[in-house]
Every structure is written in C-alpha cells, then in structure tokens.
Design a protein around this nucleic acid. Sequence first.
DNA 1: CCTTGACCTTGCCGCAGCGGCAGGGTTTCT
DNA 2: AGAAACCCTGCCGCTGCGGCAAGGTCAAGG
Lengths: 244, 244
Amino acid sequence: MRIGEIAAVVGVTTRAIRHYHHVGLLPEPDRRPNGYRAYTVRDAVLLARVRRLTELGLSLDEVRDVLADDAGRDLADVLEELDADLARQETEIKERRRRLAVLLAAEPGEGEPISPALAELLAKAPHTTSPTAAKDREHLTLLDATGAGGEEVYAALGPLAADPAVLALYERLDELADAPADDPRIPGLAAELVAAVPDEVFAAIPRDGAVVTGFKEALLAEYAPAQAEVVRLVMEAFIERGRG
Amino acid sequence: MRIGEIAAVVGVTTRAIRHYHHVGLLPEPDRRPNGYRAYTVRDAVLLARVRRLTELGLSLDEVRDVLADDAGRDLADVLEELDADLARQETEIKERRRRLAVLLAAEPGEGEPISPALAELLAKAPHTTSPTAAKDREHLTLLDATGAGGEEVYAALGPLAADPAVLALYERLDELADAPADDPRIPGLAAELVAAVPDEVFAAIPRDGAVVTGFKEALLAEYAPAQAEVVRLVMEAFIERGRG
DNA sequence: CCTTGACCTTGCCGCAGCGGCAGGGTTTCT
DNA sequence: AGAAACCCTGCCGCTGCGGCAAGGTCAAGG
C-alpha cells in the first residue's frame, strides 16, 4: 500500500503518518523503486494500535513508551494516570462553565465579567458621573478580579453604596482636582471619609501579607495632588485602625 | 509599579504580561529613566480584565476582540460560543473516560486496548500457536481499530472461533508455508475455508465503499505464495457471494 | 567600597501534534 | 499528450507562555 492507502484504511491523515515516522513512533517502511513508502498490512496493524492509543488521549511519547514496554502492565498504569488527568480536566471545564453560566445569566447589560456579588453592589450604588467614584468602581473590579475581596467586603460596603450622602463626599473629592496639595479642605474631607466607612469593611478586607510594594504609590499617582493627599490620609487612618 | 509588582497584584507571571505586550493585547506602559516599565493602577485594572477573560478560557485573540469592541454585546456572543465549545469538550472527555473505564475493567491481562466484543471473541477461541491464526487475530484487531466491524461481525464469528475444527484448517494453511503456488492442496483448503465461514459473517461486514485500493495486494503479500493463493481464492469466493 | 541578591531589560528557542505550502517527481486516466 | 491525483522532502505556523542567555539597575549589608 502507498501512504494514502494505509491512511484511508486506518482512518488517519498522511501527514500524521509521516509525523509518526519523523518522531520515531512508527518505523519507516521499505520504499518502492520510485521512492514511495510501501506499507504492509502489519504496518497498518501497528498504526491502528498507535491510533487507538492517541485517540484515547495519550501523548505520542506515552504511546511510544507503551509500545516499547510490551509488558501490558505499564499500559494499565498509563491509562489510570490518563483517566485521573481527564477527570481533572472535566471538573475544570465544569467549573468554567459554571462561572460562564453565572456571567451569561447576569450580564445582559454590563460589558464586564465581574462576580455577581460585585454586580449587585454596583447596581445598588446611585448613578453618578463623579470621576473619583468611577475610579473607585474600577478599583473595586480590580479587587474583584484578584479574588482578594470576598463576599463579606461587598456585604459590608452595601449600606455605604446605597447611602446618597456618599455622593456628596465624592463630589467634594472631585472639587479638589485642581487644588494644591495643601488645600485646607483636605483634612476635613479625609476625616469624614474615614468616618463614613463602617468598621466591618475594614475588618473584612483580608490583611494576609502586606500590600504589594509600590502599589500604594501607584494608587496615589492616579489622583491629582490634593486628592492624593486625601487618599493618603485615609489610608494612613486605616493602617492606624489596623494596628489598634 | 514595576512589572513584578503589578504581576503580584493581579496574580499573573511577568512573562505573561510581557507576552501580552508582545502580542498587542496590553499597551506598553511608560518607562522609567532606567528602562523599567512603569505601571499604573489603571494598567492593573486592564490586566485584571484580560486575566478574567483568559481564565474563562478565551483565547488571546478573542480577548483582544472583546476589549476592542466595547459593545458588550459581542462579549455575550463570544461567551456563548465558548460555552458551546466547552460543552463539546466535556462530552468528548466523558466519552474517552467511558472507553477508558471499559478498557481498565476488562484488560488486566491483555496488553492491547481492544473493544470488549473482540476481547470476548478472542477469549473464546482456543489457544493455538498457528502463525496464520495469529495473523488472523492481528487482522481482526485492525478491523476493530478502524471501527469497520460492528458487534454483529464478532457475534457471527463467535461459533467459528469456538469450533475446534477450525484449528485443523489453520494448521493445513500453515503447512503451505513452503509450498509452491501451484500446490494441489490449495483449491480444496480454500473451498473448505469458504464453507466454514457462516453467511452471517459475510452479511455483517459493512460493504459501504470498495475496500481501499492496494489493500488486497498488501494482504496477499503477507502470506507465503501458496497461502496467498488460498487467501486469494477465498476472497474471490466471497466477492462472488457478495454479487449473488 | 564592593559585593551580593533581587530585580529589570531584550530576544530567541521549545513545547504537541500535526496542517499548509513550496517545489519538485510519478502514475494513471482520458 | 495533458490533466488529475498521487507521492517526496522540508520548513514555517499555530497557543500561551516558560526557560535561558547575556546583560543593566538598585538597595542593603560586610
């Protein structure tokens, strides 16, 4: 048989067969005078064995091992390992599909894949065009994606988000966009912000390991000077609370 | 933040981030005077979005598309397609595991992954050292692997395998190993072989499409001249029966 | 001051299992 | 005789990074 014929018999492509030759999985058969590979039925039997194993999901290296050690004992080992691997993949896929289902169910409006808990929180918050509020929401999605914040954080933030008084605080922060870093309104606003956040929020944020070096600086760099001052003061106050 | 810091915040490797830059999935941030990449919190937010999507199983190209079309409508499409794909993979894995389970249950002796139906058939056949019988078994595994033979073939072959008289036929075929192609024993043996195979076997073999060109020649080449003659006669007789 | 160690930079190779293509030659059918 | 359908070798491409090489940079400690 020529390569196309054995390929048709066994049900694989000629490219695959040549690849098997290339990696030494199948021996190169004799050649006809014109250079064509001349396959025997025994080659087809061998190829079919290879094929069965690869279709089960074994890697070519594993197939080579199994065919080399004709022990048959090895095969059972490899198959069991493979089954364990497939089981792992299966649960992985199920988990992903579960999360996908959650997203698909809750997302026909949002253009962002976020956890349902955060989605609920954001939905509760009043609509606003405040830039600093938008920034806060972005930071929350970051927290959400890293998985650092659990359900408790969102639950604790719930009343805060629903409180219309918070909007006024955001607006006062917005007003500091062009103010100098020593604006007199800074300390007062910082104090009010600290007071507004309930203790539970702070308690719910996992404090395992310090915040990554450089993150705070980067966070402050996001804001105008006077706003950064406010944020810095608020953060300091929280760190104090953490120590207390 | 430096690259290692943003990587720690979001929970990815620096290599992945650089890769995202390389393929244009994330914009290259500004550089510090020393050449280090300087990331902002906004970069972290973006990276986190990318990360969420890739973790769901989207390809980097798909992520790029989703982030480009901020429509949010596109996202739902991609996610649904992804879910369909995952569902397909899941059933695929289940099917493989099912076959694996069958093999693992029935195989603690055989060194070959074959269908249980064929395994049962081979177990029924009496033990023999006949080379031509061994060849036949190999050819059956080939048939088994290609999926051409269904359960009916094996069922029809059952009585034949269990018949000890068949052993004598194999031995007579073996005896022709060194005989010339015009040995007088050939026609009689061929006729007896044809007579031995029940009609159901022949009927059960699916005859969709001719046998692959070149296969018969290769099959005949497996045998010594006189044996090949027998096989050829048997095949001819079957083809005749097929026409009738 | 010098070293060590922990960072950062660019860039290229490797991975699995083939598919595709280029740039030939052969056989076969019409 | 020409076209279609085969065959050959060989190399690049895909995915999503990981690893390694061969450096530059920066902070802390002996």
